[in-house]
Design a protein around this nucleic acid. Structure first.
Length: 1126
RNA sequence: GCCCGGGUGGCGGAACUGGUAUACGCGCAUGACUUAAAAUCAUGUCUCGAAAGAGUUGUGGGUUCGAUUCCCACCCCGGGCACCA
């Protein structure tokens, strides 16, 4: 037989498989489907990376195994071909990106084919081809139509060297992901996509998919859900008072009672109130009323519009038409006929509720309240509106006389100027001793005239804006800020007047851009408070729970016995040493602890305990160590659950004078003198450590949950429980916040999908009609981005100037293009039906193939591509374009391949491994096997050119074994068992992506076979089948030599008989006192313990160790080990 | 700082659910074949020790008959997030 020569066989079989269309996936098949997916490559000029091969081989192994198991398997590939490197190359060379892309794609295709991947090449997709991006644009327009794609002026991350805006996900350590340059913040009009609308579903649905746990965790952290509350802090000093515009509804008692009442109330508080007489109140025509208000009333940024029943509708319309922000909006509904108890018809019939709620929210930025003067459930539209506006509903107090509303503190409170904060710890509200606003907070501008130190404040705001991201980080988070003098707020819980600061440690983009600072229970607030010498007030007493392990774990069902106790830290009279008590009967190591008896002072109790437990007589009390610490645990000696309320006390001994300790005490614990370091190690309970920290550092910020303290009627409640109660008591609202930001979708560049939007002078922003899709990229000569940050497309006047599709008037095309994450957000859907001209994919085919059964890719895409595509898929699901709301049933991740030195491979470092070279030298099969064998698939690993040879030798061994194959061989039960084990292990390992051990099992089998004179045909064939997915070409050649016509890749995956895995005889390890001393062979049928022990004890080696000793205990693990304890 | 991984020979790494630590591969050493080299084959290869034996899975402690594996504390490396209230 000829020597193994991959050059001779690899091309041959690649062509043969292609001709036989072995890897085509049929859309109609009686087999069960299986969809394997890998991340399609960006065809860069560097060619295929060995990292691609790692992932693609892994999935190829799985795809081939699935086919062998009888699945109709789809394993597609395509090109993610829009992107910056190609464009930058075009800028440099003047060659059109289209041409560069084609060239690169050809290289990638040739390289992938040379590796023998079982892709279905008929399904190639290419994101930069108009036939493809037509549908990318289509999806964008669907989002636009549903308000998910919007244009907004906002501070974005700007990379000055790429001249491009970046999404948060693309900024790493304040640097541009692509070029590594520092990014800055820039105000720009940008297309945004409202991924935040899907935040909660993206989070929740993670529970329904099979992703690696670390992928889920990373996505969860990125989405960053926090459950908390919004709480208003009224401005007590300096607040600009709003003026009110009250719009009444129909003639009726409501107008007679409620509005006059409100007017009087507001005026008595010193507010300016305007109440216009609206025309035609009996037969309302909204148009007249809206015009009237706009014409006759003053509306400015300080106006709060209050609309009552019909007036509510008018208020909304006025606001939209006015189109400038107002101070606030209050909608009051009492649209109930007092006689019939039915809703007024005109209210229901005449008005549509189709408002642009997003816009209204923006226009009424600071106060948004909906007040319900009836039971809410009877006015469902009000509830609907509150939901849409995310506005709090004030509950009515009126019942029978529902038009004579009583005083409504909540409503009023919402109208009085205040600062709203977001907090996850409303339970600490009583400890909030100051407020902090982000420097960008809108209210600062409004308070401007009242701020006495405005120049200083302005300087701080400017300085913080000017800071680049990196500088902000480099400062080591030292807290800076400025107090607003002339402005104060009221803590709604304590009613105390507190200072308001601006500081850049508060972020404008998160929550409300303002926080209540609780220095006692938040590290950052603590640091700030120390810096500015602000009061620190404890609102939570620490609670330590003995966890559910250990002998002091709380026993369920037993009640807690509460006890006040003193914890005494006692210092030596001359040395820097402290008393530690070590309990003898249980694993407690702590300080002197003892109960406080009735009528006894804390100090006395401490001194008494010290004397009793240690004998030392002259302890001098120095200080208390903070407040109470709660500790819940089980007391093993007293057999009861304890709830100890510990007080920390610090004593110093004046001398070593000591009395005899009672025998009783002596039996309980041991007294030790410990240095500071020894104390650290000695303590084994969190409560004791906490006191030690208090002694060492003075203040300790306790940020965990505990028992509410110093909080009026809430004192003593567990903090978790107090949260909601306190929120309710101060009229706060429960809120959820996310770290996830909307997706910046504009790129001011050339090589991307044009955003299919037209800007018309009359009609505003208009979608390109679907029939005009795709909006093709025009050919240009100059790809250079402009200094002003406009797209190069802005210069192509023939392309830009168009007629408005709606009015036919003058209009211009949008010149921004989409980011390169757009095309990749849905490509897996196109594989299913790549040629479809009418839809992004045929529904039947989608039903058949979706979801992707197994998707493998890089960890680096977890919060980018993977999250984006899940979002797009959910959107497509919502509009009925795809079945199922999750695209990928299973997601795994491969580790990076690094260069030999452990660095990243890069052209500039010259350490890139070219797969073409490896294939030339060793063959594609060797490269595949090596990459599978090199190390754990999910971990990063360095390339090693020395080790590749091992993979090649393995294939050669398999090759040479074919010379030993014989039809008749002597029975070989051992080999039989080895083959069976290998079938099981290789199969299992592939499923768990433990390819390295799969290969090693095959190597073991090959080595064993190599020892034999001859090998049975069937055993050899089984081996070939196991190797086939890894080294498809070599095995195909061997298989054909053996058998003939059909391909090994059409053969059924070998099965194994579980009984054969069981060995006939076992080596039993004999240990004496846990040390390995001997081993014996035992037949499977004589594995009874007694027999084995007898056999073992008879052995000389064992007798040597057991001689003259008594056998105390024998542990026997069947088929494994025998441990004799003497 | 927080959240994930990880730490085992000269190197990549293996070890099921707590049960022979170092499988498999690379490298290295010795030998065979060869004029020689490569390739191949055979043997050996954690440390100390002549041996019996002892020690060893980042460090220290604990639980256990027995710990790479479980628990506690700490150190180091990689990745993600980073003042997210």
């Amino acid at each position: 037989m000829a020597d193994y020569d991959p050059k001779k066989i690899e091309k041959k079989w690649q062509l043969a498989w292609h001709r036989r269309q072995l890897h085509r996936a049929k859309d109609v098949s009686r087999k069960k489907k299986y969809y394997c997916l890998v991340e399609f490559p960006y065809p860069s000029g560097d060619g295929l990376h060995v990292g691609h091969i790692r992932s693609y081989t892994a999935m190829d192994v799985i795809a081939r195994k699935r086919r062998a198991e009888g699945f109709e398997t789809l394993y597609p590939i395509g090109w993610d071909s829009f992107g910056l490197p190609t464009e930058n190359y075009a800028v440099k060379t003047g060659i059109h990106p289209k041409i560069v892309t084609r060239k690169n794609t050809d290289t990638f295709r040739r390289q992938l084919k040379s590796l023998g991947f079982s892709f279905d090449w008929k399904r190639e997709v290419d994101t930069s081809s108009p036939a493809y991006y037509k549908w990318t644009q289509w999806i964008f327009l669907q989002m636009f139509k549903r308000g998910l794609a919007y244009k907004a002026k906002m501070a974005i991350n700007w990379c000055p060297s790429c001249k491009i805006g970046l999404a948060n996900e693309e900024v790493i350590d304040g640097r541009c992901e692509r070029c590594g340059g520092l990014t800055e913040k820039r105000e720009k009009e940008q297309w945004m996509i409202a991924i935040t609308k899907y935040a909660d579903r993206l989070l929740k649905d993670l529970d329904s998919v099979n992703y690696l746990e670390r992928i889920k965790t990373q996505q969860r952290n990125w989405i960053g859900r926090s459950d908390g509350a919004e709480i208003d802090f009224p401005i007590s000093e300096g607040g600009e008072k709003p003026n009110f515009l009250l719009l009444h509804g129909w003639t009726g008692r409501a107008n007679k009672n409620f509005l006059p009442w409100l007017k009087k109330k507001l005026e008595s508080e010193g507010f300016a109130v305007e109440t216009p007489e609206l025309p035609n109140t009996d037969k309302p025509t909204e148009e007249e009323q809206v015009t009237y208000v706009l014409k006759n009333c003053t509306i400015d940024a300080n106006t709060i519009i209050v609309g009552h029943s019909l007036g509510a509708i008018v208020a909304l319309k006025v606001l939209m038409r006015h189109n400038k922000p107002v101070r606030g909006l209050v909608l009051v509904a009492a649209a109930m006929d007092p006689d019939t108890n039915k809703e007024y018809k005109p209210f229901h019939k005449t008005f549509s509720w189709d408002f642009d709620f997003e816009k209204i929210k923006r226009l009424a930025s600071s106060r948004l309240v909906i007040s319900d003067l009836l039971e809410t459930e009877r006015i469902p539209y009000l509830k609907r509106m509150a939901l849409k506006l995310e506005a709090p509903i004030a509950q009515a107090t009126a019942k029978k006389e529902h038009f004579t509303a009583k005083e409504e503190p909540f409503l009023l409170q919402k109208l009085i100027p205040s600062i709203s904060v977001f907090t996850t710890r409303p339970d600490t509200l009583f400890g909030a001793t100051y407020l902090v606003l982000a420097p960008e907070h809108q209210i600062i501008e409004k308070l401007k005239r009242k701020i006495k130190n405005w120049p200083e404040v302005l300087k701080y705001i400017k300085a913080s804006k000017a800071k680049k991201e990196m500088e902000r980080m480099a400062e080591g988070r030292e807290k800076t800020g400025v107090a607003l003098s002339g402005v104060r707020a009221i803590n709604p819980a304590t009613k105390e007047s507190i200072t308001v600061f601006i500081a850049d440690y508060v972020l404008a983009g998160y929550g409300t851009g303002a926080i209540m600072a609780v220095p006692a229970h938040d590290q950052r607030d603590f640091e700030f408070a120390k810096e500015f010498k602000l009061p620190i007030r404890e609102a939570i007493e620490p609670l330590f729970n003995a966890d559910d392990k250990g002998e002091d774990a709380i026993r369920k069902g037993l009640p807690f016995k509460e006890r006040h106790a003193a914890v005494c830290i006692v210092k030596h009279w001359s040395e820097d040493k402290y008393i530690g008590l070590k309990w003898k009967k249980t694993d407690w190591r702590g300080f002197v602890v003892g109960g406080i008896e009735d009528g006894e002072s804390l100090e006395d109790a401490g001194r008494r305990e010290i004397a009793e437990e240690t004998g030392y007589k002259n302890a001098k009390f120095v200080k208390k160590l903070g407040g109470i610490i709660h500790s819940q645990f089980y007391h093993p000696l007293k057999n009861e659950n304890r709830w100890a309320k510990f007080q920390g006390l610090y004593f110093e001994l004046e001398n070593g004078e000591r009395e005899e300790i009672s025998a009783e005490e002596n039996a309980i614990h041991e007294v030790l003198w410990l240095t500071r370091d020894e104390v650290e190690k000695f303590l084994n309970a969190r409560d004791m450590r906490h006191f030690w920290q208090r002694l060492l550092r003075g203040d300790v910020v306790y940020t965990d949950k505990g028992i509410v303290a110093n909080s009026g009627k809430f004192t003593g409640i567990p903090s978790e429980k107090a949260k909601l109660e306190i929120v309710k008591a101060v009229g706060g609202v429960e809120k959820v916040s996310y770290k996830l930001r909307d997706w910046v979708f504009s790129r001011q560049r050339y090589w991307g999908e044009p955003i299919p939007i037209i800007h018309c002078e009359n009609c505003g922003t208009v979608a390109v009609p679907l029939k005009d899709l795709p909006v093709k990229l025009p050919d240009v000569k100059n790809f250079k981005p402009t200094e002003s940050g406009e797209s190069p497309l802005a210069n192509v006047s023939t392309w830009i100037n168009v007629k408005c599709p709606e009015c036919g008037g003058k209009a211009k095309r949008e010149t921004d293009v989409m980011p390169n994450w757009a095309g990749s957000s849905w490509y897996y859907l196109r594989y299913v039906d790549p040629q479809n001209k009418k839809k992004l994919a045929d529904r039947k085919k989608l039903n058949h193939w979706m979801p992707v059964d197994w998707y493998n890719g890089g960890m680096e895409h977890t919060t980018l591509h993977l999250l984006y595509s899940r979002f797009w898929h959910k959107f497509l699901f919502d509009i009925g374009a795809v079945p199922g709301s999750e695209p990928y049933a299973k997601r795994t991740a491969h580790g990076l391949i690094l260069a030999e030195g452990g660095e990243k491979m890069s052209k500039s470092k010259g350490n890139v491994v070219n797969p073409d070279d490896i294939i030339k030298m060793y063959g594609a099969d060797t490269l595949r096997v090596y990459e599978m064998f090199m190390g754990p698939f999910d971990q990063a690993i360095s390339w090693s050119s020395d080790s590749i040879i091992g993979a090649r030798r393995f294939i050669e061994k398999v090759w040479k074994l074919s010379g030993k194959v014989a039809k008749k061989t002597p029975a070989d039960r051992e080999l039989e068992s080895l083959v069976t084990t290998a079938v099981k292990k290789v199969g299992d390992d592939i499923e768990e992506m433990k390819f390295n051990t799969a290969v090693s099992h095959m190597m073991i089998l090959v080595n064993e076979m190599d020892k034999r004179e001859s090998i049975d045909v069937e055993n050899y064939k089984t081996l070939l089948q196991l190797v086939a997915p890894f080294a498809p070409h070599a095995v195909e050649e061997l298989w054909r030599i053996m058998k003939g016509k059909k391909s090994v890749h059409e053969a059924k995956w070998p099965r194994y008989d579980p009984k054969k895995v069981a060995k006939i005889a076992h080596r039993i390890i004999i240990q004496i006192n846990g040390k390995l001393r001997d081993s014996i062979m035992v037949e499977a049928d004589e594995a009874e313990q007694a027999e084995v022990v007898k056999k073992a004890l008879a052995r000389d080696t064992v007798r040597q160790w057991t001689e003259g000793k008594e056998v105390k205990r024998v542990i026997y693990v069947p088929k494994r080990l025998l441990n004799i304890v003497v």
